[in-house]
């Protein structure tokens, strides 16, 4: 990053220029990247979560409903890993405004899919 140091603002300067309202929760966060250890950890973590879900399902270790709940939880955790490690979701020049619509749309999507699953549970006695 220091190669561009002569032309670019520092992260702190950009934040202070942008933040006239004192919005602390939108404060950007940049990872210190000396060696891509974070990326490697994120990759290994994703692989572990993927195969954990696979073996749980293929060996039928739990009743169906519990199994589905657990693998969905693993998926949400892995999605968070991708967002945090690879998508740098809190990085921004100044305030990280993308966080507000992002959290909102997660809520909407969760409601949409979750309520669709929920309403289908009532359709018949067998589900």
């Amino acid at each position: 990053m220091s190669e561009h140091g002569n032309t670019a603002l520092t992260i702190k300067e950009a934040y202070e220029q942008d933040n006239d309202k004192g919005l602390k929760f939108l404060r950007p966060h940049f990872a210190e990247e000396k060696f891509p250890a974070v990326q490697i950890a994120g990759y290994i973590g994703s692989l572990v979560l993927t195969f954990a879900a696979y073996f749980l399902v293929m060996n039928h270790v739990l009743p169906p409903a519990a199994l589905l709940a657990i693998i969905l939880a693993l998926a949400v955790f892995q999605a968070g890993l991708q967002l945090g490690v690879f998508m740098h979701l809190k990085e921004s020049r100044g305030l990280a405004w993308q966080l507000i619509p992002l959290y909102l749309v997660f809520l909407i999507a969760l409601g949409m899919v979750g309520m669709s699953i929920w309403i289908m549970l009532f359709k018949s006695g067998v589900s």
């Binding site: 990053m1 603002l9 940049f30």
Partner: peptide, 15 residues
């Protein structure tokens, strides 16, 4: 670490 963070420059795509 905190001192280092303060002089951290914006990456090129945010410059």
């Amino acid at each position: 670490l905190a001192e280092e963070h303060e002089v951290q420059h914006l990456p090129v795509e945010f410059a």
